[in-house]
Structure formats: structure tokens, C-alpha cells
Write a protein that binds this DNA or RNA. Structure first.
Length: 311
DNA sequence: CGAGGTACCTGAGAGC
DNA sequence: TGCTCTCAGGTACCTC
């Protein structure tokens, strides 16, 4: 389940192995992963073929590969008439470059493989490159997906609503703390709100809350400023630790997001530890249902909030 | 606008 | 053995 650190490890791997490569072929083996691309698989393949990958970018759990603006390639538009839109663009306003936008969802992987390597069980999209390897999108559950974003090189408009992530140098701590403390929802729900802060998933939310001694259902507007700042600090701490562990196992061509990333080896204090003793106080970790998933917490270190008084 | 709920999707594993 | 059920969860979309 890739969260920010895993996606960043993938981005770094792609930066090394894919930047500068030209896409020579695209094979979409399942429609669902390209469902967000207007025009579907055929349009997706046409929009990519012949384009050159000129970089790698990430915001939260999204990553995108800016493409060159080669005139040979079919220009992408927001709608279904790409060529007309391209010609309608005034010549003095060169459109921002397009980008291949990627979300790994729950089980997505981007692999760099030799073309002759056997197909993975859940191989969905193959992207041939003018290299000794190709890019593969493998995704069992297909919550993830790929699309070509028109003019999305700098920031794809499809993800304009996604907030900056806490490792972004332009992330505004003060603004985040203020916005968080204006909300009445439980603090875990808000950590998972990608429009408020991006990159955090269920696992890192639980870990950051455990480190902060905060229960996930604590209303955000009941946090002190100091508590909110401390929570943000712990979010960053958990992510950086994960990044440090994941970053070392990616020397090979194999760019992975599950297993080898060190993700599951990492010492987790709360997530997945139901009934195990809390590493701080020894109390049994509890699991409760939350938003169609699970929350893990120490009932002693992270006491449940009292019910808000009905006014 | 915010809060909170649900559909989407597949396969592993449990229980019978 | 084979069936059914539950669970994993990020995001878009829905209602209130």
C-alpha cells in the first residue's frame, strides 16, 4: 500500500532509469488502469508513443513524468478532439508540456524490466522505451491508474486539488496547522484528507498518531497549536524514516513499491499490531473499524476523546 | 463549504 | 475439495 515514501522511492528509481528515454510502444492489457484517460486505451497509447520522458515529479502519492512537446506526437487535449485543440493554440503561447500521470492505488507497481522478461501475473500496461528495458505497470486490484495529462508537466490539472505534501519545501506548516484546527472532524480523517495534506495513508496516519499520543477520533479543533505542530513533526519523522529504509534497496533496475521497499520490515508501533503490547507502555494495542478499514492505537497512550458536548 | 458514508477491485485466507 | 465470506484501502463521488 504505497504512501508517500514508497512513491518517492519509485520516483527516484524512474528518475535514474527512465528520464531521457523515448517511448517507442504502448500496450494496454486492461482498460481499467487507463479509465481516467479521456478516450481510453487507444488514445492513451497514441498520446504517449514517440514522446520523450524529460523528468519525474511527485506530489503526495501521485507521480508524473513530464514529456517533451515533440510536434511529431499527437498532442493531448482535455477532450476527445486532441488535434483540433492543439491547432487552436495560438503559436505564441506554447502549451505547457504534457505528462504521464500515475497513481499506484493500493497494489500498483511500476517496474523496469527487460522486454523479454516473463509477464507478471497482473501486468496491465507495457511501455516500450528506446532502452534495454521497458516500463511496466503491474496492479492486482487496479485502484491505481495511468493517464496522459494535457499540459500537466508542471502540475497536472487533474490533481490541482491535492495539497502539497509535508516533504515539499513549499509546504506551509503554519497554514496547515491553522486549517487543521478549524476543522471539527477527527484528526485521523483529516490526516487522510489529501486536500488538506497529501501523502499520508492509513499506516503512516496510525504511526504518527501513536507517536503523538493522540487518538484518531480527537476532533481537530480540540488540538492545541503545540499538539498540531507536534503531530506534523511526527508525520514527517515517520515518512523520513521510511524513506531512509526504502531508499537503499533500489540500486538495481527493478523499481518496486511492495516487499523490497522495506515497507513491511519497518518497525511499526501501532499499525497491524492488534493485541500486541504497546512499545511504550505495554498495554495491548487495539483495533477498531474506521472508514471501511482499521485503526490501530494504544488505548492508554492515545486515550479516546470524551464525547463532544451536544450544544 | 464540511462531515461522513460508500463503491470500486482482486486475491489471500478463514471457516465450514 | 470447494464453496462462501471477510478483509485489505486510496480516491471519487454521493448525500445531508
Amino acid at each position: 500500500m504505497p504512501e508517500l515514501p514508497e512513491v518517492e522511492v519509485v520516483r527516484a528509481g524512474l528518475e535514474r532509469h527512465v528520464t531521457g528515454a523515448t517511448i517507442t510502444s504502448v500496450a494496454v492489457l486492461h482498460d481499467r488502469p487507463v479509465r481516467r484517460h479521456p478516450g481510453g486505451a487507444t488514445s492513451f497509447a497514441a498520446a504517449l508513443t514517440g514522446r520523450k520522458v524529460v523528468g519525474t515529479r511527485r506530489r503526495g502519492k501521485y507521480l508524473w513524468l513530464p514529456l517533451d512537446n515533440s510536434d511529431d506526437a499527437e498532442r493531448v487535449s482535455g477532450g476527445d478532439s486532441g488535434q483540433q485543440a492543439a491547432r487552436a493554440t495560438p503559436p505564441d503561447t506554447l502549451p505547457a508540456g504534457d505528462a504521464l500521470l500515475v497513481h499506484l492505488g493500493m497494489s500498483g507497481q511500476l517496474l523496469v524490466q527487460p522486454p523479454h522478461a516473463p509477464a507478471e501475473r497482473h501486468l496491465r500496461v507495457r511501455i516500450g522505451l528506446d532502452r534495454a528495458w521497458e516500463l511496466r505497470f503491474v496492479d492486482q486490484r487496479m485502484f491505481g491508474g495511468l493517464s496522459v495529462s494535457a499540459g500537466g508537466a508542471d502540475l497536472p490539472p487533474e490533481i490541482a486539488h491535492i495539497a502539497r505534501d509535508p516533504l515539499d519545501p513549499l509546504f506551509d506548516d503554519t497554514e496547515f496547522v491553522a486549517r487543521l484546527r478549524r476543522r471539527t472532524a477527527g484528526v485521523k480523517r483529516l490526516l487522510l484528507d489529501q486536500g488538506l495534506i497529501s501523502g499520508i495513508g492509513n499506516i503512516y496516519a496510525d504511526e504518527a498518531l501513536w507517536r503523538s499520543g493522540l487518538h484518531g477520533e480527537r476532533p481537530a479543533d480540540r488540538l492545541t497549536r503545540a499538539q498540531a505542530i507536534e503531530l506534523l513533526r511526527h508525520v514527517r519523522e515517520v515518512m523520513v524514516e521510511a524513506l531512509d529504509q526504502g531508499g537503499t534497496s533500489f540500486d538495481s533496475l527493478y523499481v518496486n513499491v511492495n516487499g523490497e521497499s522495506g515497507y513491511f520490515d519497518r518497525a511499526l508501533h501501532a499499525y497491524g499490531r492488534e493485541d500486541a503490547p504497546c512499545d511504550r507502555c505495554g498495554t495491548a494495542i487495539r483495533r477498531v473499524a474506521f472508514m471501511n478499514r482499521s485503526s490501530y492505537f494504544c488505548p492508554r497512550c492515545q486515550p479516546a476523546p470524551r464525547r463532544r458536548r451536544v450544544v
